[in-house]
Amino acid sequence: MLELASSLFVAAGLVFFVAGTAGLLRFPDALTRLHALTKADNLGLGLLFVGLALRAASWSVAVRLLVVWLLVLFASTTACHLVARAALEARRPPRG
């Protein structure tokens, strides 16, 4: 039962990683691509975390997985902010 639930969560997580990658390739500019990366990865990794935590050998492993998820969220939102700011500045006409 737990095995099945775990596999379903992992599979769902992978669907979001694929969708995020599709968005990265298909979306028209840097800013829309960032949407695909941040949202789909946030959710995909979260689902992966739940799926793997369900079959973790000990609570310590589950806590470590949670910490990984939170650190990735923090890194991805920070990187996203920096890339978005740069993309926006590049788009503006240079001021005379």
């Binding site: 669907v15 979001f16 969708a19 995020g20 599709a22 968005g23 298909r26 979306f27 028209p28 500019d29 800013l31 829309t32 949407h35 695909a36 949202k39 789909a40 946030n42 959710l43 995909g44 979260g46």
Partner: peptide, 21 residues
């Protein structure tokens, strides 16, 4: 997060690529 991920995934996989940024 769930709704954000589903929303962007749907847009990325839709053949018409529905975006209005």
């Amino acid at each position: 997060s769930l709704s954000g991920g589903v929303d962007v995934a749907r847009r990325a996989l839709d053949p018409r690529l529905p975006l209005s940024p």
